[in-house]
Design a protein around this nucleic acid. Structure first.
Lengths: 133, 133
DNA sequence: TTCGTTGCAAATGTTTTGCACCTGA
DNA sequence: TCAGGTGCAAAACATTTGCAACGAA
């Protein structure tokens, strides 16, 4: 890994994610940062998102539909993803540490992290009378 | 949802996944099926994978790196994904039902399924002396 | 006959990369 | 000074889609 230098852009990407309570995609980060950095490029946003994720300073969320989402919230938490509107909600489940201990016993390697996504219809969509399909 | 007709290709996609113990990508499914169906197209493979996943006859696995993987194993199980070689291992953790009950209480919607991925270095990679980065 | 399915190819959407220039240390 | 970072544009991937022909019911 090469040495790292300060960059205004990287700082802005991280700061932006930390002040959001939702889970933007790279493209959303790009559009929003453009307001402060009219010349920032999408490539730079992607490069910094990948780097920050690798450093563990942000989290990458794969929902299984379309683009990746990013999360600046480092508190341990999990996600509920609505199968209809694809909104990602934060939820907090306590038993995760116990779960990881149990999983470690059955695991072909040393577990370092765990992504726990719950899927279903969110209450908003349910109240609009949507059913699953 | 439209009525469904039998198709040799869809049957082959499903059969292929059920006989594999690993977790192929769409492209792998395509390449392997080409041996039996020299004319099958990638589009058809994608269409059938999506359809089967929607019907719950196979599972879609998002690892967060590159293409989606598919799994014909419908037994409840979870995955350990090596951060270095990206191999997906099946693991079995028992507490998942309890966990889902607990999550339901904190959830902004009705939970229907849950994807649980563990990340870390697999023993193979660890023994090759790799560290995390 | 009907309508879902296929193969093909083109299109789309997302992410990565090469390169010349810029900038922080 | 110089390695890392940036902007830009092109490329690389992964996946979806339009359409005419095909095939199951």
């Amino acid at each position: 890994m090469p040495a790292r230098k300060y960059s205004r852009q990287r700082e802005a990407v991280k700061h932006f994610l930390m002040t959001r309570r939702d889970h933007p995609t790279a493209d959303t980060v790009y559009s929003c940062l453009r307001e402060d950095f009219p010349n920032i490029s999408l490539g730079t946003v992607y490069r910094n998102l990948s780097l920050l994720a690798e450093l563990g300073e942000i989290h990458r969320i794969s929902t299984g539909s379309g683009a990746e989402h990013f999360d600046g919230n480092l508190e341990p938490h999990q996600h509920f993803i609505c199968s209809r509107c694809h909104t990602i909600y934060d939820i907090r489940v306590d038993q995760v540490d116990t779960l990881m201990d149990a999983a470690q016993k059955a695991s072909p390697g040393s577990i370092e992290s765990c992504h726990l996504n719950f899927y279903g219809l969110c209450d908003q969509c349910a109240s609009k009378g949507f059913n699953e399909n």
